[in-house]
């Protein structure tokens, strides 16, 4: 998908997204091209995490949710994720990269997983503001928080 078009679609959804992130108490999203970083803290901890939404292909494709080391954002994947005790987690391989997924509609890993790839969902399922709500639910309602790394 054309990068300029993706950037325009992100622009379209940006204000609603940052408003949703603010009212849910997530950190202020920062955007670099088609990638968005959101500083977050799981409920019950003072530990900093950096959620990453890789939005290439948005909104034909859902954003890919990953977490990065806040000190070294190039380090990503399972060791950078918060471990939430009741979150329905799984794993998917994209290219040569293994990414944890939350088994709930809204992020690309879920929709690419072999168990869900044939499901039909409207694009609003992975609208940026909806992904902010899913991220908040993951961090606050799928605990208890059990530490760093999945």
């Amino acid at each position: 998908m054309d990068t300029e078009l993706v950037l325009a679609v992100i622009d379209r959804d940006w204000q609603v997204f940052i408003a949703q992130a603010a009212r849910l108490g997530l950190g202020a999203p920062r955007r670099t091209g088609v990638e968005i970083g959101i500083p977050v803290r799981p409920a019950g901890t003072g530990e900093d995490y950096l959620a990453i939404l890789e939005c290439d292909g948005y909104d034909v494709a859902a954003p890919l949710l990953d977490f990065a080391n806040p000190e070294h954002p190039d380090q990503r994947g399972g060791p950078c994720w918060p471990r939430m005790g009741s979150a329905p987690m799984n794993q998917i391989t994209i290219g040569n990269r293994s990414v944890p997924i939350i088994c709930t509609p809204g992020t690309r890993g879920y929709h690419l997983h072999i168990s869900h790839v044939h499901e039909a969902h409207p694009r609003t399922t992975w609208r940026l503001s909806a992904v902010a709500t899913l991220l908040h639910r993951f961090l606050t309602q799928m605990g208890p928080y059990q530490g760093r790394g999945v």
Binding site: L24, N90, C103, T104, P105, H113, H116
Partner: peptide, 11 residues
């Protein structure tokens, strides 16, 4: 205020 479904589908 935010109003959302209590449950989300889990695969």
């Amino acid at each position: 205020v935010v109003v959302q479904p209590r449950d989300v589908s889990k695969g």
